[in-house]
């Protein structure tokens, strides 16, 4: 018992507890124990022997390979054929401070949202194309592509009064951008789906460029369509949850590296419903607004079975 008390006091002293430090002055045994604890701590703080040079090189190269991959994914940010997009990579204000970093992060998030929105529109178009084929529609490659484009536009317009919708419906250039940007995701074998940055009231968030706002509107088409067609369920391939979604999840309840099991965009709530699992196979269920990162339902683990 006395031994436990000494240990407790020694631990308290290590954390700077003045009472414990006072007690040590009149108790040589305690002082010895504290000294021993301190010695251990000091040695622990000595950096261990460095990793072998070859490991260091391999590790750095692997990280840089990931970095290169990320840069390739970010390439669509360069000016498009219409020349209306601001290249983010050379944003003049993104040179130093933390404030600049936040701004850069925000723009990057906006870009991802736009690209993901475009991917969602293309997905609806693809489904429509398959549907047309199954009911006997025949035509050449170009005709089929045009038909799917038209159907995408029709679905979109039927569900929205947005002024931007015609730009998606009739403009060949925006659709080309959509296809171009969605190809980026295909290259990564990573399917993405998000709803736009616009709330139900149609309030737009700031956007760097006209094409961006166009694709955002297109997403609204997808997510707010009638119930029989609007719910889009995407089963992601096994992999880590995209960091942008991790940003939205509450820190206290999220494993460091959640793995996506499924993601569903709800047409009624404009919400993103995620089922993610961690390395210990615990499932978590989240429903949140992807634009604001506000949870719409309590995050909760999913019982086994």
């Amino acid at each position: 018992m006395a031994d436990e008390t000494l240990d407790d006091l020694a631990n308290a002293a290590l954390d700077g507890d003045k009472r414990a430090l006072e007690a040590a002055r009149s108790n040589p045994d305690l002082q010895t124990l504290i000294d021993e604890h301190r010695r251990v701590r000091n040695v622990m703080r000595v950096t261990p022997p460095a990793a072998a040079h070859e490991y260091r090189q391999n590790h750095l190269e692997a990280a840089l390979a990931v970095f290169d991959e990320m840069q390739l994914t970010a390439k669509p940010a360069t000016p498009s054929a219409s020349g209306s997009r601001t290249p983010e990579a050379v944003a003049p204000e993104s040179s130093a401070s933390g404030v600049v970093l936040l701004a850069s992060k925000r723009r990057q998030k906006q870009r991802w949202l736009n690209v993901a929105a475009a991917a969602a529109v293309v997905g609806v178009g693809a489904i429509a194309a398959v549907s047309l084929t199954s009911i006997g529609f025949e035509g050449g490659t170009d005709d089929a592509a045009e038909s799917s484009t038209d159907l995408t536009a029709t679905t979109a317009q039927a569900s929205l009064d947005s002024a931007d919708a015609p730009a998606v419906a009739s403009g060949a250039a925006p659709l080309d951008e959509v296809l171009e940007e969605s190809a980026v995701f295909d290259a990564d074998s990573e399917r993405q789906i998000e709803v736009d940055d616009q709330g139900a009231d149609g309030t737009s968030l700031e956007s760097d460029s006209a094409p961006s706002s166009t694709t955002s509107s297109a997403t609204a088409d997808t997510t707010e369509a009638p119930a029989d067609a609007a719910e889009v369920r995407v089963v992601f391939p096994e992999g880590p949850l995209d960091p942008r979604f991790v940003d939205c999840l509450p820190d206290f309840d999220v494993p460091d590296r959640p793995w996506v099991v499924s993601a569903t965009v709800s047409d009624t709530l404009g919400a993103l419903e995620l089922l993610v699992g961690d390395d210990l196979n615990t499932l978590y269920h989240f429903v949140f607004d992807p634009a604001s990162c506000v949870l719409l339902a309590p995050a909760e683990p999913v019982p086994d079975g």
Partner: peptide, 11 residues
């Protein structure tokens, strides 16, 4: 760290 660098907010 590489993947999440854009999440570092400088605080």
């Amino acid at each position: 760290i590489t993947r999440r660098l854009d999440r570092f907010d400088g605080r």
